[in-house]
């Protein structure tokens, strides 16, 4: 038998095919990175353009004045959005969190399965369908006409599945050992929920609520059909209201000769981006921290 010299070269002496395999692995790593450019370039382009249209015309008045003719500010829309999102979060939060609690803690397995499935199906219903549902049920059938209340309710329906599912998941993910330890010490179900499960699950539920708020803020489809439109700040829940996404939809296609309408639309878009990204950053940081803590619990 031939004795190979320089034995360690087994690790560097490669066949042509092995070299090709290793090279292919490296090349594909770089090719995949190109996808970043393909995705991130348009997205930064979007943010950049919106900012460049909005910022030059923005001033303090943008936030504090009403729309006057083709000019003025976004005050009515900002106020309307605030009222709508408060209503929506209140409704979706109350219903979603309690439904999530019951599903995770009390419901029998069959009910659990059905509730979760329904939640996921609800999340998949196009927003415009919910809008039309609201239009028929809350605008026409009730003879209310377009109202802030109807908008808030439909926004709540839109946000509910997100809050419901996060609450359910957060509570179901409480490690069984914690649960058993607590119940074994003789605490009641409610005590367990209050003292053990809720503190562990709280950051996730919080994340879910804020995430749902960010989504709700950005939706126009469920609102255009329910909240209607008004150029003055809303005074009562039974009046129609304007809102930021509606402003964009109302003004986006005016010809350039009506430049100030376009400016209003872009200002609303810029405001929305800033608010939604701010909420999302908080949510991401929180959920990232929570996930790592959860990973720590399970390790």
């Amino acid at each position: 038998m031939k004795v190979t010299t320089g034995l360690g070269d087994e690790l560097t002496h490669t066949s042509g095919r092995m070299r090709r395999r290793i090279l292919f692995d490296r090349v594909i790593g770089w090719v995949l990175l190109l996808a970043f450019a393909a995705v991130f370039f348009p997205l930064f382009d979007l943010i950049g353009w919106v900012a460049s249209y909005a910022l030059p015309t923005m001033s303090w008045a943008t936030l504090t004045q009403n729309q006057v003719g083709t000019g003025g500010g976004l005050y009515a829309m900002i106020w309307g959005t605030l009222v709508l999102i408060t209503l929506g979060t209140g409704i979706a939060g109350a219903l979603g969190i309690s439904a999530g609690f019951y599903t995770a803690e009390f419901a029998p397995p069959a009910v659990k399965r059905i509730a979760r499935l329904a939640g996921n199906v609800l999340a998949g219903i196009p927003a415009i369908v919910l809008g039309y549902f609201g239009y028929y049920a809350l605008v026409l059938y009730t003879h209310w006409g377009f109202t802030t209340l109807a908008g808030g309710i439909i926004l709540g329906v839109f946000m509910l599945p997100y809050i419901f599912r996060t609450t359910d998941i957060a509570l179901s993910n409480v490690p069984p050992s914690q649960r058993e330890a607590s119940l074994a010490l003789g605490s009641s179900r409610l005590q367990y929920l209050r003292r053990v499960a809720f503190p562990i699950a709280f950051p996730t539920i919080f994340t879910g609520v804020f995430f749902a708020m960010a989504l709700g803020l950005g939706e126009a489809a469920p609102l255009v059909y329910t909240a209607g439109w008004s150029s003055t700040p809303v005074q009562s829940l039974m009046q129609p209201t304007s809102f930021l996404t509606g402003g964009i939809w109302a003004f986006y296609d005016f010809p350039r000769s009506f430049g100030s309408f376009l400016a209003l639309a872009f200002q609303a878009a810029f405001l929305l981006i800033v608010i939604v990204l701010a909420i999302n950053i908080v949510v991401q940081v929180l959920s990232d921290r929570y996930r790592r803590r959860l990973a720590g619990l399970y390790e």
Partner: peptide, 21 residues
């Protein structure tokens, strides 16, 4: 860590080849 005298963490050594051996 030397495999037959060669540092398996060496710059020219690919982990794929190490794991083959």
């Amino acid at each position: 860590v030397r495999y037959l005298g060669q540092d398996i963490y060496g710059a020219q050594v690919n982990p794929v080849l190490v794991r083959r051996r």
